[in-house]
Simulated assay, not measured.
Amino acid sequence: MSAAAPRHIPVLGREAVAMLGLRDGGLYVDATFGAGGYSRAILDAADTRVIGIDRDRSAIAGGFDLVERSNGRLTLVENRFSNLAEVCAAQGAGAVDGVVMDVGVSSMQIDEAGRGFSFRLDGPLDMRMGHDGPTAADIVATASEADLASIIYIFGEERHSRAVARAIAASRHEAPITTTRALAGIVSKVVRSKPGDIHPATRTFQGLRIFVNEELDELHLALAAAERVLKPGGRLVVVSFHSLEDRIVKNFFNERAGSGGGSRHLPEIARSAPAFRILTRRPVIAQDAEVRANPRARSAKLRAAERTDAPALAAAALPAWPSLAAVMRGG
């Protein structure tokens, strides 16, 4: 199968697959199928079965050839990875041996101008990973100036978020902002950069993309779902690409492993039995050779943990940041 299949090497792919501890007969979930790099490696490494999930219909369609070559060992499902527990149940999988996630936008999506993810390629201001819900253009047209500033500050970590929001609000009164080039031009007028800095629109585009796709909410929910479906001894491996994602993963593992105790000045409180054992005390990062071959690997961090036999803990409430539904209804 592997000789004829098109090759896609995911960032930290070798390390991620090794962390899964693959075994013959095991069932694994590739929660962010993308171009199929993890799924292909898992299928090649052992006599395994894989459930691949992606919210992007084009990614699922692109994986049909791999499904055919897998001789029934790969099943692809178009869905959000936050729904992985329901996906597994629908596939008759009560519990699985491993889950791998590569969080964030894929290089395929960035490189396709029509998807509207990149300020370097002119295209419609879309940014949706799936094919439903409001676009980035809808958010830019509908959100209040205050909401825009919050979105760009919280999810884009842009310290000039108020100036950017003010410029967007002023520009949309003149004409609709419907293309990536138009938005990048507006942002570039208020966010200055020096030679060698990132593009002025980088953080604004990141913030809108994360918000449009509810990426951080999705990650919170997906981690909790993985906890519910993993067998004792099953492993969860997550590769993230920026500090917001990595912080969520790190905190989740620490909470579920019982790490980071309370204060010595306060009485002890009863703790639930740890649901995970952390395998990566420090995140795994890409080696120099991989970074040279793929600059995107420079920011990647891999964290992994192994499920214990303790019951899954209750999912924590989502953070109180701007929600897509509330912003779209003006609330």
Rank of each mutant, 00 (worst) to 15 (best):
A3K: 11
A4F: 05
R7D: 09
R7N: 05
R14C: 02
A18K: 14
L20D: 09
F33D: 00
S39L: 06
S39F: 05
L43N: 02
T48E: 01
V50M: 00
I51F: 00
I51M: 02
R57L: 09
A59L: 06
F64Y: 08
G72K: 07
V77P: 09
A95T: 10
V103M: 14
R115S: 02
F117L: 13
D122Q: 03
R128N: 07
I139D: 09
V140P: 02
A143H: 04
L148R: 12
A149K: 06
S150Q: 15
I154S: 03
G156R: 09
A163E: 12
A165H: 08
A175I: 01
G185N: 11
S188H: 02
R203C: 07
F205E: 10
G207W: 03
F211H: 11
L216W: 02
A226L: 08
V229K: 10
P232F: 05
G234A: 12
R247P: 06
I248H: 01
E255S: 13
G261Y: 11
L266E: 14
E268W: 09
I269A: 15
F276I: 01
I285E: 14
D288W: 00
A293K: 09
A297R: 03
K301Q: 10
A316G: 14
A317P: 08
V327Q: 10
G331A: 15
